[in-house]
């Protein structure tokens, strides 16, 4: 059976949580991939976890995009392989231009850690196959640079093409200003590439996989990968 690969950069700190969510909570073969590895054989899914890759030096994700693992990742994604970037992983994917836009400092200029709600919109992606538009997920955020930014025409295009995967919302699914934790443009929490195989999001589905730690809505998103595990890419 093919595996989920969780890429570990120097300074990644969500790699173990992502590994645990897939390997233990979902029971899927999962291995941690070193940032110097270039052999992607046997991997059906790639995950870029949260953390502070390269200490967030220069800009979040700006150095990680040059890591050796990124070339084979790019090729894997070009073949349609499913890639998920969580938090710092999302930042890396935007720095690598695999996803549009950028993540700026939170509007408050401070780090925020708390639970948020997300309303699903574009569910035609590799990572949302088990979800429907309008579904509300409760997931934690923990970041200092999570304000999604893109110019107006890019945002219009993302919205028009169903590439806004999720927005921050209140528990009832309304994307109010109060529910936007970081000043993201149009409350955007998650976006996808044109092909829908690459998704980036700031909240942490891998931290919401068991009710004993506050919720298990993350499993609804992460379990989408089950359908890919026996597909060679």
């Amino acid at each position: 059976m093919s595996s989920v690969g969780v890429i570990s950069f120097p300074g990644s700190n969500g790699d173990h949580d992502a590994w645990h969510a897939f390997a233990v909570d979902l029971g899927i073969p999962t291995r941690v991939i070193d940032y110097r590895d270039t052999d992607m054989s046997g991997l059906a899914v790639l995950v870029l976890p949260g953390g502070f890759s390269y200490g967030d030096h220069l800009r979040c994700g700006a150095i990680a995009r040059f890591a050796p693992v990124m070339e084979p990742l790019r090729a894997f994604a070009a073949r349609g392989g499913p890639v998920l970037g969580i938090c710092n992983g999302f930042q890396i994917l935007t720095e690598a231009h695999l996803l549009p836009g950028a993540l700026l400092r939170n509007q408050t200029l401070r780090f925020h850690c708390h639970w948020t709600h997300l309303r699903l919109e574009g569910t035609g992606t590799a990572w949302t196959s088990g979800l429907s538009p309008g579904d509300v997920l409760r997931l934690p955020v923990a970041h200092g640079e999570g304000a999604y930014y893109a110019d107006a025409s890019t945002l219009d295009e993302l919205e028009a093409t169903g590439r806004v995967v999720a927005r921050y919302c209140d528990p009832c699914g309304n994307a109010t200003a109060d529910a936007n934790p970081n000043g993201s443009a149009r409350s955007i929490a998650a976006v996808s590439n044109e092909g829908g195989n690459i998704v980036g999001l700031m909240p942490h589905p891998e931290r919401a996989t068991d009710r004993v730690v506050g919720g298990d809505d993350g499993l609804r998103l992460l379990s989408s990968v089950l359908s890919f595990l026996n597909v060679a890419v």
Binding site: D17, H20, G50, C113, R207
Partner: peptide, 27 residues
């Protein structure tokens, strides 16, 4: 406490603000 990451490592059963002590699971 919202400026501190208190959910990473996914062990936090009783987070700050809701109990008299923090409770963590031992995986």
């Amino acid at each position: 406490f919202e400026r501190y990451d208190h959910t990473i490592l996914t062990n936090t059963v009783v987070p700050p603000g809701v109990g008299d002590a923090a409770v963590l699971r031992l995986k």
